[in-house]
């Protein structure tokens, strides 16, 4: 079988599907000061899984507000800098109108993922932390 570290180099999703790979990538991002990119990406996935009807609507609203406040609202943050203004407005409207559908963060997640794939992921594959592990 292919060693895990080699699989991680195949695609971002093969890295993020693996627990050890995710932890190593997060350590790298933390050193680079942008672990929030990965936390946000997983928060979006977690939010989508919290389907309407399961658990309280209040909990989903509270979570949407928490994700928005922590990652999107403050323009200087690593996530906010990579999310387009129109996407931010869309999320803000969802939160303010308290109409939070499971796909509320999908576009923002796509934009952050593109930034990770373009910058952080290639840097990770060349980093000491990855090469030492591999």
């Amino acid at each position: 079988p292919t060693p895990p570290a080699l699989r991680w180099a195949g695609s971002l999703h093969s890295l993020l599907d693996d627990r050890d790979g995710t932890q190593l990538f997060r350590s790298f991002l933390r050193e680079e000061g942008c672990a929030d990119l990965l936390d946000f990406w997983f928060a979006c996935s977690g939010f989508r899984k919290l389907a309407p009807g399961e658990g309280s609507e209040e909990k989903r609203l509270k979570l949407a507000r928490a994700i928005y406040k922590k990652y999107v609202l403050h323009g200087a943050g690593v996530v906010a800098r990579r999310v387009k203004p129109a996407t931010k407005s869309f999320i803000r409207d969802c939160v303010l109108r308290q109409l939070v559908d499971p796909a509320a963060f999908d576009q923002a997640q796509t934009e952050v993922q593109a930034a990770i794939e373009e910058h952080s992921y290639p840097l990770f594959l060349k980093s000491d932390i990855y090469l030492e592990y591999a």
Binding site: D17, R19, G46, K49, A66
Partner: peptide
Amino acid sequence: IDSEDDLLQECISSAMPKKK
């Protein structure tokens, strides 16, 4: 009642891959 931060952490953890 969970604080917003606890809720966020729980959400992130729920989406992370589990140990194989």
